[in-house]
Nucleic acid binder design. Structure first.
Length: 218
DNA sequence: ATCCCGAGGG
DNA sequence: CCCTCTGGAT
């Protein structure tokens, strides 16, 4: 199947069945989303959502983070992955937002990436979700699902390469939604260790499933 | 043992 | 390119 056809059917399916996908991280403003996404590295959204209510009550904005320190922040996030690194990142994040960005969340990818704990993936999420820019954040789900479906070539071995391949084929206005669609599919259907092909509606266009049929003996 | 909406440093 | 960070669920 042609790649163009794969993309068309992938986008058609999700446009029809999940027209308004959203992140599962809990937040109520750009600052909270930024913090939540920084915390979500190598950690499930569910666990992040367990610590953010108390965290946001104590630190409702960049100023409060800037006035605190990594030691105190650590006590609020000790139950998630890499609490030491992330508490240091958040302390520095608060300070930089206050000192260099007037306590506003910057909109450009380059400026976002200057913030401690914010790499390309997190910067793309903020640009896409907060500012509705056509930025494709490639996390573990997007990477895996894109390869399994056959949306990107095997030579796309890095998140950046996958990002560029996806951007080539997804219409600009659908990029923010496609990001969520790939994540939702990876989280609930195309699981890393046990892809649920039996309930998957995309098997007709899936490269992984196609190969699976060839190698399975009945 | 592997995975989870990765980032920073060497 | 590599390595380290390193909690909790499956």
């Amino acid at each position: 199947m042609l790649k163009k056809e794969r993309f068309r059917r992938f986008l058609d399916y999700f446009t029809s069945n999940f027209p308004e996908p959203e992140t599962e991280l809990h937040y109520k403003d750009p600052f909270q989303l930024l913090v939540a996404v920084v915390l979500s590295a190598q950690c499930t959204d569910k666990r992040v959502n367990m610590v953010t209510p108390a965290l946001f009550e104590r630190f409702p904005d960049a100023q409060s983070l800037a006035l605190s320190n990594a030691e105190e922040i650590f006590t609020y996030i000790r139950s998630i992955s890499y609490p030491n690194n992330k508490s240091k990142h958040l302390a520095g994040l608060g300070r930089m937002l206050v000192e260099q960005f007037g306590s506003e969340i910057p909109a450009s990818i380059d400026e976002l990436q200057k913030l401690p704990g914010v790499g390309r993936k997190t910067a793309n999420v903020i640009a896409s979700v907060v500012f509705n820019q056509p930025a494709m954040a490639v996390d573990t789900h997007v990477f895996r699902v894109s390869h399994r479906l056959g949306l990107v070539p095997k030579t796309a071995t890095t998140p950046l390469a996958v990002e560029k391949e996806l951007m080539k084929h997804i219409p600009t206005e659908l990029v923010p939604k496609a990001h969520h669609w790939l994540i939702l599919h990876g989280r609930y259907v195309c699981l890393a260790r046990s892809p649920q092909c039996k309930i998957c509606k995309l098997t007709p266009i899936c490269q992984y499933y196609e190969k699976l049929q060839k190698t399975t003996v009945f």
